[in-house]
Each structure stands twice: as structure tokens, then as C-alpha cells.
Computed example of a mutant assay.
Amino acid sequence: MGDGRLEIDRISKSFGDVVALRELAFDVRAGELFGFVGSNGAGKTTAMRIALGVLAADSGEVRWDGAPVTLETRRRIGYMPEERGLYPKMKVGEQLVYLARLHGLTPAAAERAVADWTERLGVAERVGDEVQKLSLGNQQRVQLAAALVHDPGILVLDEPFSGLDPVAVDVMSTVLRDKAKAGVPVVFSSHQLDLVERLCDRVGIVRSGQLVACDTVDALRSTGAMELVVDAPSAPPGWADNLSGVAVKEHVGSRTVLELGDGVDDQAVLRAALATGAVTEFSRRRPSLTELFRNVVADGVAA
């Protein structure tokens, strides 16, 4: 009996002289939301296509439930490609029923599933419209319905949030959380790192086809340097410039963000700030996932 995990085990892929993936390895556990992030060209889409079986890896293996992914397994995957794969001239309802039938649903079950998902995703009144007549946001919702209509055991979504308005982002987020709660492993790529930070249990950062960091958001953020936010309205410019082991990251109005070196006593910083007058804010913070990503990808250093 397997454990419900999707495992990407040291997959490599080259296109001619271009190495797209180098021994990429991570797993997505049952009931987990896994965020897959990286710059354009880092290898995210290639990895997802290999997981789906659309592309063959040069080496390595993809497993689900402890066994290699087969054609039968692939029918259980809900996939949302970045370059959306809907037929523009086909009506929404007909298209979704067709896709559900392709995945093995009976006509009646397909009709029921389409009614459920179009209702849930807010496009029920569009089932008689051609896909090309929908707004981009509604096309996106229909594309998600296409990935969900056959009740998949795994969800693999490439940039599912791109081009969505805030309401649609909330709808999409709720659906993904609910699928994870039902025990489905969910992996999605996104450039919207604030969303990844909010939604995901774990995050993998890929650079040049290699995984350079993989952990919970909290653990990744804790690898970054501690920062202090200090608001000292009376402080003169440069008040923190000469503090030992302290770097000034930004200074806006009376608010200064400082990066503390290892072992620096934040109370010494507080004393220096108080020496200038009142201090209205003094708080510690860890860098956001966006800041961490920028550092990992730009510096070429694994977190």
C-alpha cells in the first residue's frame, strides 16, 4: 500500500545542449499544498510536464503511492497547463463533460460533476457560452474546473493564479485548500510569492533546473537574517550607521529597517534609538518569502 505521495526522484532533462533539469528531487505528500517557485526558464513547467507524463525524463523517476506513474495513474491527475488547453469554439459545458468522460466518468456522473464545479467556481451561468467569449478570469475558472471535474487523486497546476482578480484568487485558494484537506497532494507553480507564502505547507525553490531550497515557509524564512523595524521620529538621518554588526536595509521617513548580524544585541539598538527621542515602533521580523527568493536566486546560494 502506498503513502499517497507524489515523488519526483532525481529527474534530469536536456533539450539539445540546454539542460532544463538536473537531478531534480522533491516530494508532495498526501494532503499537502506544495508551492514550486523559480524564475522564468528555471525548469518548473518541464518538471510538471514530466510529472504528468507529457514529457519523458532523460533519467530519474516519478512515483505516486510508491509505484512508477503509469498511463492509468495519469488519468487520476488533475492538470492545469500554463498555456491553457481549452478548445476556444467549444461550449463550456460540452467541453467539461467531454474531458470528464475522457477520464472515465459515466455520462450522468460527468454531467453532475460539471454542474457541481461550474457552480462552485462561479461559472454555472456560462456553460452554454463558447470558451473564447469568456473573460480571461472566467476562462481560468473553467480551466480549473477541467482539472477537477474527474475527482483527481493528484493536482498539478502551472501558474493557476496568473491573471485572476482577487475574488477569483480567493475562490481558487479555497478549492485548493479543500482538495488538500481531502488528502490530495497539490503542487502548483506561481510567481505570486505572497500567495505561496500564505497558502503552502512547503515550498521548493528551483534555479537553473536544480532545487536550491525546499522546506516549510517558516523554516525557509528563519534561514534569512533577523531584521528590526524601528520608528524613531526624532532620530537624525544616519543614526544607525555606526552601530556594530547592524546594516541599514531601508530608511523611509522616520522608519528604518535594520539587518542584525549574528549575536547582535537588539537592546543596544533600542538604546541608540531612544537616545534620539521617542521610539514609536520597535519590532523583529523575518524576511518575506519574496525577499528570500530574491536572495537565493540572485546570489546563487542555496538557502
Rank of each mutant, 00 (worst) to 15 (best):
L195M: 09
C214Q: 10
A180C: 13
S208F: 06
P107F: 14
E23K: 09
G253W: 03
W239M: 05
P160D: 06
M90H: 14
S135L: 14
S59N: 13
D129E: 15
A108T: 15
R29H: 15
E250Q: 12
V279I: 09
L71P: 11
L258C: 06
G253Y: 04
T106C: 06
L292Y: 05
Q95V: 03
L148Y: 01
E32T: 14
L260D: 09
A108L: 15
S283D: 10
T276C: 08
V142C: 05
L164I: 04
E32P: 05
T106V: 09
D178S: 13
S12H: 08
P236E: 06
G204L: 03
A273G: 12
V131L: 10
V230Y: 00
M48P: 02
D201Q: 11
V149Y: 05
A219K: 12
Q139E: 06
I8N: 02
A240V: 11
L52K: 11
N40R: 08
Q140P: 05
G41I: 14
D65Y: 10
L6A: 01
S135W: 11
Q132S: 14
D165Y: 11
V196G: 00
E291D: 03
T118H: 03
P287G: 03
S59K: 14
R202N: 02
L52F: 11
E227C: 15
E23C: 07
A145G: 03
L105H: 12
K91H: 14
A235M: 04
A51N: 00
E32V: 13
G209P: 06
M1H: 12
R29F: 12
A268P: 01
V131P: 07
N242P: 02
V92I: 11
G245V: 08
L228P: 02
M48F: 15
G263N: 09
N138P: 09
L102Q: 13
E7W: 06
N40L: 04
G78S: 10
G85Q: 12
S189N: 14
V217I: 08
D158H: 09
L176D: 00
A42S: 14
V212D: 07
M90N: 05
M1P: 13
L102G: 11
G137V: 13
A115E: 10
M226H: 12
A124M: 07
D129K: 13
A20K: 08
D299S: 15
A25Y: 03
P88T: 13
V114R: 02
L220P: 01
R112S: 09
W239P: 02
L144R: 01
A42E: 01
V229E: 11
K181F: 10
V37I: 15
G2V: 12
G104Q: 10
R284Q: 13
I77K: 04
F26N: 00
E125V: 08
D3V: 00
D3T: 02
W117Q: 00
E94Y: 02
F15T: 09
T174I: 00
V196K: 00
Q267C: 11
W64T: 09
D116W: 03
G263T: 04
H191K: 06
D231L: 07
L148N: 04
Y87P: 10
E32L: 13
A240M: 09
L220V: 07
L220K: 01
R221K: 15
L96I: 03
T256V: 14
V206G: 01
E94I: 05
G53E: 10
D262V: 08
S12R: 04
A232V: 01
S162K: 05
T118W: 02
